[in-house]
Design a protein around this nucleic acid. Structure first.
Lengths: 136, 136
DNA sequence: AATATACGTGCAACAATAGTGCATTGGACT
DNA sequence: AGTCCAATGCACTATTGTTGCACGTATATT
């Protein structure tokens, strides 16, 4: 079991107080969050820092982004050994139209889909919308 | 074969010059467009009108929305008899990381996916990212 | 240890996208 | 024609995404 510090370090970025805070915030919840969710949680932190921290995390494969239709991108932690690869790692997301939460269903992978000749798929984003288990 | 006017009318909204223009603009291209794409195309039109027209179209099932990660929602016309239903109508979208175009692959349906107990999926949004046929 | 360097953070400003309220226009209907 | 309601346009506000710069702190170099 890696510590968060070790995990961040092995991804090739420095450990800072801010990054640990943001990481822990994300780790505490199973739902994807927007930048402003994080901003509200720590009212001392500058928006820009959050923005850049999340961007760094994304570049280094620590978080992934989800677009589910409501305005604003959401983010969630990747699993420890996720490489965000199409065939193996990409899971589906569920957006509840009632509570508006977006949940990572990490155990539900995106099925293999056919694409027309000439198209090369490298990445995928599948969001199901409906009613989640808490709201149904 | 329905005229555009008939199609709009049967969806339960009035035909106006603006709506015809926007409809035709969408019909002319196979790619999904953002609101500002439309805005640039008709520089006489107010953004608010576009925004509300698209919203009306969306509510009435004339267009569908696609979220593909780059900022801004994109829109494309639904097929004539599309009801935007999960099992039958929802097709996949392809976003090219090179030319940044988003293409409706209307003949490629979203495969049936399993969701955990308690979740009820009503809608889905699947965007593949990679290189399109023109750029590969 | 002292210095140089690179990185992280915060501030300020800007740009793009979303959304609302209100006055006016214009078509549909009697 | 006059009434009514939907559609449009204008002005304004809110939210989200983004960049440049200055400063401080951690890291590397000697």
């Amino acid at each position: 079991m890696q510590t968060i510090e070790q995990h961040i370090t092995t991804k090739g970025i420095r450990v800072t107080a801010m990054r640990l805070l943001i990481y822990k915030f994300l780790a505490e919840r199973s739902n994807a969050v927007t930048l402003s969710d994080i901003e509200k949680a720590f009212d001392k932190v500058d928006r820009t820092t959050l923005y850049r921290t999340i961007k760094t995390f994304e570049d280094k494969g620590i978080v992934h982004q989800i677009n589910e239709g409501s305005t604003g991108t959401k983010y969630a932690l990747c699993k420890t050994n996720c490489k965000c690869e199409l065939e193996t790692d990409l899971h589906l997301h569920f957006h509840c139209n009632n509570c508006e939460e977006t949940i990572c269903l990490t155990d539900y992978k995106i099925p293999k889909v056919e694409v027309p000749d000439g198209f090369i798929a490298e990445n995928a984003n599948l969001v199901l919308k409906g009613i989640c288990n808490k709201c149904s």
